[in-house]
Amino acid sequence: MRARVWSWAALAVGIIYFALPLIGTVEFSLRKRRGEYSFDAYRWVFEDPRFRETFSYSVVMALFTIAVGILIVVPTAYWVRMRYPRLRPLVEFITLLPLVIPPIVIVFGYIRLFNTSSVLPLTGTATGTNVLLMMGYATLSLPYMYRAVDTGLRAIDVRTLTEAAQSLGAGWGTILGRVILPNVLVAVLSGAFLTFAIVIGEFVMAALLNRPAFGPYLQLIGANRAYEPAALAVIAFAITWFCMGLIQLATHLSPHSRARRS
């Protein structure tokens, strides 16, 4: 009985810890108009052209980052599992590096390596800087993407499926595209979702590379206005949860993955 009381108490503390700031933010974001609740702050945010510009910029960057991340991570994780299991600790270490190297260090490295007087002057053009920023995002999301995909690969018998496909005449492209990727799609989606969240909120890289991303915009509004940052935070949360819902839906709609979990 005592144990039960304590576990309820722990749960309550947890809920308060997570929910209270959120409730406070929502409440505050509704108080722009004096004396009553209103959506004025939200209206201001949605009417601000910079919100639309920076947000759509970040979304496009996120989609590219996800595509590049999948192209890099899925074949790598697959090859490590299939052919070079001994390299696994090394590859895992590399994928974890972005967690211990601060983004500011990475981006300073980028600027030094790819500046206009370097061999590959990516920072000389907007497109080049966008590519550089996207690569930076891909690096930041590497730990999450790799973990997710590797876990997904663990759930299927990669070797036997590969051999079955090979004996049916399939080459590597077909095996990866038609056998491996569809079977780790749910894992890839969860990696993609994390990537999306990282890219939308990222500040340091975008700011130092001077690109019009959502992160710097958030910071700008936060520094200059009172209620709108709260509204922006709530919007960001809503988008995040919407993405999570989409992943749940995708998981639910694909029949074979539903079976594998049961």
Binding site: I156, D157, T160, L161, E163, L168, V179, N183, H256, R260
Partner: peptide
């Protein structure tokens, strides 16, 4: 060649 495996190895998707 055609091969049949002990673990079936059907493509689950």
């Amino acid at each position: 060649i055609g091969m049949v495996f002990q673990a079936y190895a059907l493509f689950p998707n």
